[in-house]
Each structure stands twice: as structure tokens, then as C-alpha cells.
Design a protein around this nucleic acid. Structure first.
Length: 955
RNA sequence: GCGGAUGUGGCGGAAUUGGUAGACGCGCUAGACUUAGGAUCUAGUACUGAAAAGUGUGGGGGUUCGAGUCCCUCCAUCCGCACCA
């Protein structure tokens, strides 16, 4: 046994000297640590493993492959992160070998809350921690030979990058959405329109209660009034928004960051508060975002998620007159206008303007209390009730537009203010929530569609059947009735068709420090104005504290003299995490351009991302925002790409068993997994290292954390059995696998191979280190194979062995086709099969060995580079063309048919590749095995499928 | 509840898209070379059965000469949206 001190760990290398021929005896073993170190150093001198080709190589076809860039967190990468990166690296290397000009960049989504939290705790500037983390990431990425071109990297937190994020924001601020042309346009075109016609004719996406003004009125407006009106149209606009305010974090949280009234991060209480926030008029794009999904080569599930998120629903708005209040009306949105005769009440969101007006007017304390109470309930909890819905009768009625009957107006918080008009018509007979509400308050329920349902059974929600109890709709089918009632509503000017989207304009400002400052200042009128382009980037200022200002203002209020040179105060908000990531794929094409965000020439060459790889968890966030920004920049003529990611693949997540102990709810007693049914327990994740074959090492746990030191244990047969669950690798669940340890033990090539060999890229799969032995053995085998072949070959003088040629061509074909399908697990399997078969030959020709190393290179670049050099090649292997197979070598002369009788396989027979079906049939029928099965039976049919199989069918 | 996906040996997974189910790898069993084996090589390894043979791709049904693959239905698991009027 020899020991090689690798510097990382002492690894025993086993191999035997006996029995081997001399040349093998002196063959150096596969010491991956040395090899990988050697090539890493070599490649360090180069920008990229294959030097970047300049745009002068325009004749080359391009391939732009992209990974979602990571947030550089302090905990570094775990093996799961590598999944997508390795896949893209394989593709990138393959396309380079195939003559493409490949771009496979990597960068950092570097603004984010963790660095800011760290800054708050330690006082260290987030830029410092971020830079440190990025450095660590780059080392980790380089060690597994990921061929990223670091010259093209981007970092969203650097001024040269966020200058353009701010620039894009200004473009949004200075634009409006023309719904007639379905395009965004510069704001000056809108101003001209106002000068000519006021806003009476313009079709634009704007705020709900934008006042109407004539050209004359516009021209008479003061500058301030004009700006106020324009703000109703800008694509980036200020809006009073109900936001999730977290006092402890001093910030506003997105809906997805709030869980049951508490912040997801930190678990602090969250209240709802009205604040002026920047919003983006994304809803203007809802229809285009929906329609264009059809053109995308994306996983179906992700497209479906985006469709749900956009949430298009078609229906009608119907206006009801309020009884006893002349001229006052309430407009509701419904998807089922045909059920108009089944309306038993009207329900309004507590936030509805009419409700507020009523409360002010009457001073009704119960109503005011109800409005207050609803304010702090999240949408989720407001909708979560299944048995009782709360509400309050306002004491007023509306008039049914057809029957003239009075319908009570209720305030109910199951009606959400931001969906539709914040008002619904309650049809308890045909809507589940309306039904529950009616049950809760004993309201009338009145069916208008014929069904076998009894009222006691619940609502009949299906949109099919014959209309009843519905005056002029009686006897019609549901669709017919819907059409007829709409005609009538439109005719009577009390209703119109309406399309609604669930999507809302996202809030775009954060009360945080570590993000892009808004290039916005405020004049005396209190209105926002954009900085000019030459004032960008607006640098993130140093602050005395990263916490919110004691006044409650965001951290930027802690900056010294945060104002324009003229002395106007600058906006105190910063942009959210997704700002920088919504357009970064554009910047990679031209990362250092100081003049524009992306030059026309570079865009014309690269034309956008060909293949995007990233996690499915970004299905509705990042992937939707990036599509929105792309369309916006496209509208304004800055880019010619309409969709950012035409082709998308989600890599699966790596899972590992977690270890769980169960503690009694109010005692420090841990209960073994088999006994938990009898107790009230809380599961707690513990490090998996403490568990061997489900049995817990009690001492390890006790010394891990003080809280366990004096814990008592309820054991099963003297052992504590842990619970386990296959879960996504995550630091908080203590089941992460650190890549450095794996690399030290098996090498980066083995880790790459293993990650890819595990299974289909897009599938989630469990990590099990045992399996890595297989690919590690394979690499050792390759090593021996090449050295063995090299020692024995006499170049160019070996007679070409047809069988061997066929094997390498077959392998080439299988590997190439698998790579193109991103089926890397079968590609590696083909390499293994190829090697196993080639190893049976005494001598192997040099060209076969060369081809094999080339086929391996995208998967295991270190060993490939080393072997390439060891067979006497001086140039870089990455510059060499990928092998191409020749079908004529693969042609078979004969085929082994499987012969079945009544579908059951009975024997196999070899026939010439071109044998006629007639001849095959005759030969099969006289074959002794077949005769045995057909003896005494009547043969009904003999199915002969050329070069597939034969089936003899008996009566 | 809705939408999407998945279900194949002890395990990870293959299967030319309707044509030999279980490639490749792990694990396991036996053997070889060995002081040794956690190196390497050889053979075997879905299940039942002594064998002949039979049974097998979550369950049930169907189409077909032929179904892991297509259709219907049910079940389980995972992911997403969650009572969006």
C-alpha cells in the first residue's frame, strides 16, 4: 500500500505490482489530486479553458447557454448547486468542440437581505461580506472545472452594473402603456396627446381613479398638477399600497415572504400598513405575458404556474343602484353574469370606498370595528375559512336591475379589495363561498340553474344546465343565458364585458439599504422627478447605521446629505432583489459597455439566451419579472428580443435524508420514533452525522447543543430511533453535503460524473455517496486503458480492426445524441459500455483512444486533459473537434429476431439484414422450438416486422 | 379543491417512442490472483419453481398479433396555486 500525501487528506492508493506486465508496473497511478491541481493552475493563466473568441469570429455559429446566477450566501455551495452548473458546462464544452462560439457566463445576484442582516449585526459593510462570499464561490466553482468566462461576469451590486438597473427604472418612469397599440411608449408622446386632446381619447394603462380632463384643462394645469396626472400613467409610479410591514425588520415584505402573519425570515410579526411605494405597471403586460407563454419551450408545469399566477378570468361588470341614495351605484365583477336572477345579496370588501364613505357618514361603530379588524388579516387567512365567513349587514340595499327587488349590502372580508372591483354579487346557490356566507348568516338561497342538487347539499357550481327562475333567461342553456344577459346589460348600460387578472402591479421599493437606490428626487411639490442619464449611477451612499432611521424612514435616511447637487432630497428606498436579476442575461452579452446597456452589434450576434437552466422555485418570480422587463425594453426599442428565455430546463434538486428527533411539547424529553404516537411531540432536525442506521448517538447530540445536554430520552429496546425524511438539501435541516470533502476523496471529475450519472437532470434525486464508487472506478479504468494502449500501440501500423471501429463509432453516436438531449446519465453509461468493450482488445489504435478521450472531455475535463497530454498531444484538447460517427460503420449485416408465439417469446433466430419476410416466415415455422409450440394448433397469422421481431399467432 | 409531474429489481435508474423489460452503475453471491483485500479480473444476480414453465413495470379494465409505453378508471407520492368572485 502506498500513501500519497495530497495535502488535503492522506489517501491510500491500492494497486498491485504482481501479475502486471512491465509497462503497467511502471505506469503511474491515477492521482486525481495532483492532476486536478496541475490543470487548475494551467487554466488559471487563461481567461477561459477555451480562450474567448472575439466578435471577429462572426462566421461561427453562436450558442448562449445560461445558468440562473446565485445569491452569494455565506454558507457557500453544496453539491446540489453544482447540478445545473455541471450540466451547462458539459453542453458548453460539447458545443465548443463542435465549432460553436459558446457563451456560458456566471455572475452574482449580489444584493440581498442576508448581507444586510449581517451588516446590521456586525456593522460590516455588506459590500465587504458580499465580495468575500463571491471570492469563495469562484474558488468553489473553479475547482470542479466549470469553464465560465469570468471576464464576462456580472455583479448586480457593482455601480457599473446597477447604473443600468437604475437606467431601466428611469425608462419605466418615463414611459406609459398604450393599450391601443399594446406597447409601452415614451411619456412625451402622452404629454403631446394631453396637449391635443386631454385624456378623453387616450387608451392607456392607468390608475383606477384617474380623473378625466380635456386638452383645455390640461393646458391650464400647473406643472405640479400635470406631474400628478402623469404619475397616474407612468410604468413606474408611486402608489399608496397596503403593505406587509414588519416592525422588527423595519421593512416591507412581499406576500410570499409572509407566513401566517409572521415574516418568513426571522419569524417577526407582520402588520398591514398603508405606505407610498413604487410600483411597476406590470398588469398592463398581463395579456402578452399570457399569450406568449405558448411560444416558449418550457416545462409545462412552469407555464401552467405562470398562467395561474396571471389568473385571467373573463366575465362582466354589473352596476347596481343603491336604494335611497340617488345616483349612488355599486359595480361588481362576476364570471357568471347569467346567475343574475340568483343574486341574494351584495358583498363588499371592507376596504371598498363606498363602505368607507358609509362608515364616515353614519359613524356606525360596529362597521368601523369590522373594517379595523379586517385590516390586519392577510388575504390568505381571509380566504382560508371553510365553515364560517364573517360579515356585517350595512343596513342598505341595492336594487336588482331586472326585478327591482332590494338586495341587502353586506361587508365581508372574504371579498378582496384588489380583485375585480372589490365587490361581488352573492349567488349562494351556485358559488361555494357565497353559499357558506349565506349559511353563516341565514341568508336566502335561490337556485337559477336546474340541477338534482338539494339546497342542503351545498351549491351547484357547474356552468351547465337549464336556466330556471330567471325571467327572460328561462329555458336557455348556461352559455346562451350568459350571452343574452350580457346583451341586455350592455343595452341597458348597466353592464359590460370585463377581463380580470389575478396579477397585481408588484411593489418595487424596499425599506432596505443593500439594494439599488432609486434615481429619483423630490421637488418642493413633493412629486418625484427622475435624474438625468448622465447622473447615473447614483451610488449607494455610506450610512451611519444599516437599521431604519429612528424616525421610521429607511436606512438611506442615515446617509449624510442624501440629495441632488441642487439640494433636492433623493428617494430613500432601494429596489428589491429581483431588480438586477430581471435583465442580467442581457448584460452578459456586453458586460463592460459604459455607453449603453447592450450594443446593437453584440445583441445582433448573440441574439439572446439559447438555453436557460435553473431551479423551478423561480417559476413565478424571477421568470415572470424577467419576461416583463424584456418586453418593456423591447417596446421602447432598446432590444429586439421579446422573450428572454425561449428554452428552459429546471434541474432537479438533490435530496438527502434528514434526521429528526421528537421532543415532548413541554418537557425536555426526547421520544424514540416508534413511540411518538402516544405523545404530543415537536419534531426537531438534527445533524445527520449523529445517526447510524437510524440509531442516534446520544452523546453526540448532548454535546451538540446545551439544550440537549440534560435532555431525558425515551428509548426503544435501549436505542433511540430517529425519524427521517428525504428532503431538499438545506443548511437549516443539517443534511447538506459539502462538495470539498467529496472532491478530496474522489476528485472533481468523479463528482461531476456522479452528479450527472445520478439520473435525468430535471428529476429530483437522492444523494447517496455509495454510488460515486462506480464512476470513480470508471475513471481509474479509463486511466489504465489509455496507458495500457499507449504502451502497446505502434502508431499507424496496426491493421484497422472493424469491430473496434464500430464500437467507437457507436459510442460516439450514443454519447453525442445523449448530450443533445441533455440525457447525461445515459451518455455516461454509453461511455462505460464503450470502455468495457474496447478493453477486451489486446491492442487499441491511437485514433480510437483519442476519440474516446475526446468523448469523455465534456464530462471529466481534468483527466481528459491529462490523458491527452500523456499520449503526446501538445495542443489543448478543448480546441479539438468532437468525433463524428459514420453510419456506414454501424450498419449491421444480420439481425437477431425474437420469435414469439401468441406474444410470448419462445426463441431467437438470426436472419440476414435484408431477408424477405416470406423467407423469415418459412424458416420460423419449421424451427423446432416453434414447431413444439404450434404442434396441433391452427396458425392464424404470422406477423413479421422487419428487423424487430416475429409473432406467430395461433387460433 | 384545481393544475402539473412521478410510480419499473435490495437501491439510483435504462428501454431506439408500440416490438427481447431491467442497459449502465451501486449493492449482493461465488470464483481467480493474493500474506491480505476496501485494489483488479471472471461469472452470476427481477420473482416463484427441482425442472418444465409460469408471473412480473402502483391497482383494475380496455385497444392491439404485441402495451412499461396508447385509452378509461382508481390509488399513492412529490411540487405549485390555494376557496380570485
Amino acid at each position: 500500500m502506498l500513501h500519497f500525501d495530497t495535502g488535503v487528506a492522506t489517501i491510500p492508493i491500492y494497486y498491485s505490482f504482481y501479475r502486471l506486465p512491465n509497462h503497467i508496473l511502471y505506469m503511474q497511478p491515477y492521482i486525481f489530486t495532483e492532476i486536478e491541481q496541475k490543470w487548475q493552475n494551467k487554466w488559471k493563466q487563461q481567461k477561459s479553458v477555451t480562450a474567448d473568441r472575439s466578435l471577429t469570429t462572426n462566421h461561427l455559429p453562436k450558442y448562449y447557454i445560461l445558468n440562473m446566477f446565485p445569491y452569494p450566501s455565506g454558507s457557500g455551495l453544496h453539491v446540489g448547486h453544482y447540478m445545473g452548473y455541471v450540466a451547462s458546462d458539459i453542453l458548453s464544452r460539447y458545443y465548443k468542440h463542435s465549432g460553436y462560439h459558446v457563451m456560458n457566463p456566471m455572475g452574482f445576484d449580489a444584493f440581498g437581505l442576508p448581507a444586510e442582516q449581517h451588516a446590521i449585526q456586525t456593522g460590516q459593510h455588506p459590500a465587504v461580506t458580499t465580495a468575500k462570499n463571491i471570492e469563495k464561490y469562484i474558488v468553489q466553482l473553479k475547482q470542479i472545472a466549470l469553464d465560465f468566462d469570468w471576464d464576462k461576469s456580472v455583479n448586480t451590486s457593482e455601480p457599473e452594473y446597477y447604473k443600468w438597473t437604475q437606467w431601466i427604472f428611469l425608462e419605466m418612469f418615463n414611459s406609459w402603456y398604450n393599450t391601443a397599440t399594446q406597447k409601452a411608449a415614451p411619456i412625451h408622446a402622452l404629454i403631446q396627446e394631453f396637449i391635443d386632446h386631454g385624456n378623453t381619447k387616450v387608451q392607456a394603462a392607468c390608475d383606477d381613479h384617474t380623473p378625466i380632463f380635456s386638452a383645455k384643462e390640461w393646458n391650464a394645469f400647473s406643472e405640479t398638477e400635470k406631474q400628478v396626472q402623469l404619475l397616474h400613467y407612468r410604468l413606474a409610479y408611486l402608489k399608496d399600497s397596503m403593505v406587509n410591514w414588519c416592525e422588527a425588520l423595519g421593512t416591507v415584505l412581499a406576500n410570499e415572504e409572509v407566513k401566517d402573519g409572521f415574516s418568513e425570515r426571522g419569524g417577526y410579526p407582520v402588520t398591514r400598513k398603508k405606505m407610498k411605494q413604487w410600483s411597476l405597471r406590470m398588469t398592463a403586460y398581463a395579456e402578452r405575458l399570457l399569450i406568449d407563454l405558448d411560444r416558449l419551450d418550457w416545462p409545462l408545469s412552469t407555464k401552467e404556474m405562470q398562467r395561474n399566477w396571471l389568473g385571467k378570468s373573463q366575465g362582466a361588470e354589473i352596476t347596481f343602484r343603491v336604494q335611497g341614495q340617488k345616483g349612488e351605484t355599486i359595480t361588481v365583477f362576476t364570471t357568471r353574469p347569467e346567475t343574475i336572477f340568483g343574486v341574494c345579496f351584495i358583498a363588499l370588501a371592507p376596504e371598498h370606498p363606498w363602505v368607507r364613505a358609509m362608515a364616515n357618514q353614519t359613524g356606525d361603530t360596529a362597521l368601523i370595528a369590522y373594517i379595523e379588524q379586517s385590516k390586519n388579516r392577510s388575504d390568505r387567512s381571509r380566504l382560508a375559512e371553510t365553515t364560517f365567513l364573517s360579515g356585517l349587514f350595512v343596513g342598505t340595499c341595492v336594487i336588482h336591475p331586472f326585478t327591482g327587488a332590494p338586495l341587502p349590502i353586506w361587508v365581508a372580508d372574504y371579498v378582496l379589495p384588489r380583485y375585480g372591483r372589490g365587490a361581488i354579487m352573492g349567488v349562494p346557490a351556485h358559488d361555494k363561498r357565497d353559499y357558506i356566507f349565506a349559511q353563516s348568516f341565514d341568508l336566502l338561497t335561490f337556485p337559477v340553474i336546474e340541477s338534482t342538487f338539494l339546497m342542503e347539499d351545498g351549491p351547484y357550481e357547474a356552468a351547465e344546465g337549464k336556466m330556471i327562475n330567471s325571467d327572460f333567461l328561462n329555458g336557455l342553456s348556461v352559455p346562451e343565458a350568459a350571452e343574452k344577459v350580457m346583451q341586455k346589460l350592455i343595452q341597458n348600460k348597466i353592464g359590460q364585458y370585463k377581463v380580470n387578472y389575478r396579477l397585481q402591479d408588484p411593489i418595487f421599493s424596499r425599506q432596505r439599504y443593500w439594494g439599488e437606490p432609486f434615481p429619483i428626487y423630490y421637488k418642493e411639490d413633493g412629486l418625484p422627478y427622475g435624474l438625468s442619464q448622465d447622473q447615473l449611477p447614483l451610488l449607494l451612499p455610506p450610512v451611519s447605521s444599516y437599521r431604519p432611521n429612528p424616525s421610521g424612514a429607511p436606512p438611506l435616511a442615515n446617509a449624510f446629505h442624501w440629495s441632488t447637487p441642487e439640494g433636492y432630497p433623493l428617494d430613500l428606498h432601494t429596489m428589491p432583489g429581483w431588480a438586477g436579476s430581471s435583465w442580467y442575461f442581457l448584460r452578459y452579452m456586453d458586460p463592460h459597455n459604459g455607453e449603453t446597456l447592450l450594443s446593437k452589434e453584440k445583441e445582433a450576434y448573440w441574439k439572446g439566451v439559447d438555453f436557460y437552466i435553473g431551479g423551478a422555485e423561480h417559476a413565478t418570480g424571477h421568470l415572470l419579472y424577467a419576461r416583463f422587463w424584456t418586453k418593456l425594453l423591447y417596446d421602447l426599442g432598446h432590444i429586439h428580443i421579446n422573450e428572454p428565455f425561449p428554452k428552459l430546463l429546471h434541474q432537479g434538486i438533490i435530496q438527502k435524508f434528514t434526521a429528526i428527533v421528537y421532543r415532548l411539547k413541554d418537557e425536555n424529553v426526547l421520544v424514540s420514533a416508534g413511540l411518538i404516537a402516544q405523545y404530543d411531540v415537536v419534531p426537531i432536525y438534527i445533524p445527520t452525522a449523529f445517526v447510524k442506521k437510524d440509531v442516534l448517538d446520544l452523546e453526540a447530540l448532548k454535546s451538540w447543543r446545551s439544550e440537549f445536554a440534560d435532555a431525558r430520552f425515551l428509548l426503544e429496546e435501549g436505542k433511540y430511533i430517529c425519524g427521517k425524511k428525504m428532503e431538499k438539501m438545506s443548511k437549516s435541516k443539517y443534511n447538506v453535503v459539502d462538495p470539498d470533502g467529496v472532491i478530496a476523496q474522489y476528485g472533481a471529475d468523479a463528482l461531476r460524473l456522479y452528479l450527472m450519472f445520478l439520473g435525468p437532470l430535471e428529476q429530483s434525486k437522492p444523494w447517496d455517496l455509495c454510488g460515486i464508487e462506480g464512476v470513480f472506478r470508471f475513471l481509474n479504468k479509463v486511466w489504465r486503458f489509455v496507458h495500457h494502449a499507449k504502451a502497446l500501440w505502434t502508431p499507424n501500423h496496426l491493421p484497422s480492426n472493424q469491430e473496434m471501429v464500430k464500437i467507437i463509432h457507436q459510442t460516439t453516436k450514443n454519447v453525442t445524441e445523449s448530450i443533445k438531449k441533455c440525457s447525461f446519465n445515459t451518455a455516461i453509461s454509453s461511455l462505460m459500455i464503450g470502455l468495457n468493450r474496447l478493453s477486451t482488445f489486446e491492442k487499441v489504435t491511437q485514433s480510437v483512444v483519442e476519440d474516446f478521450i475526446l468523448l469523455l472531455e465534456p464530462f471529466a475535463p481534468y483527466i481528459a486533459a491529462e490523458l491527452w497530454e500523456s499520449i503526446g498531444k501538445t495542443g489543448s484538447i478543448t480546441e479539438v473537434s468532437f468525433p463524428i460517427w459514420n453510419e456506414t460503420y454501424l450498419a449491421e449485416k444480420s439481425f437477431e429476431y425474437r420469435i414469439a408465439v401468441n406474444g410470448k417469446l419462445r426463441t431467437k433466430m438470426v436472419f440476414d439484414y435484408n431477408a424477405s419476410p416470406m423467407a423469415i416466415k418459412e424458416a420460423v415455422l419449421v424451427h423446432e422450438v416453434i414447431q413444439k409450440w404450434t404442434a396441433g394448433k391452427v396458425i392464424k397469422n404470422v406477423v413479421v416486422v422487419a428487423n424487430k421481431m416475429v409473432n406467430v399467432v395461433l387460433e
